[in-house]
Amino acid sequence: MRKNRFISILALVAGLAVGIVGCATASEKGMTAKQSPKAAEVAQMISDADAARKKAASVKGEWRDTGKFIKNAQKALEASELERAMKLAKKAKAEGELGYAQAVAQKDLKMPAYLKY
């Protein structure tokens, strides 16, 4: 699952790179938003979001929907819906960071006061 996500991101980045090179060699078809500098920026945002998700997972703090947002962001990017992709990537990144902070803040077990020893 996780690996899949990673692979698809790699594929995406690779695809973008190829696309950009493709443009440079002056083929006029396929010159969509996907190859625009903005799209590259969004792709970067998505991979940053996935890094944040992974960092949260590394401390067992990943949230339920973060991965889904990243997947949907990728889909949106592929469909050249850049605004939507950006929004989802931002949301996912924030979740990754919050989940990480949540876990780290509880690094040491602190027993709740309602349980009396």
Binding site: K91, A94, E95, L98, Q102, P112, A113
Partner: peptide, 13 residues
């Protein structure tokens, strides 16, 4: 209340 069950609606977006 550190032990509150209420979800942090703002902090956690």
């Amino acid at each position: 209340n550190p032990d509150s069950t209420m979800p942090p609606f703002g902090k956690h977006n």
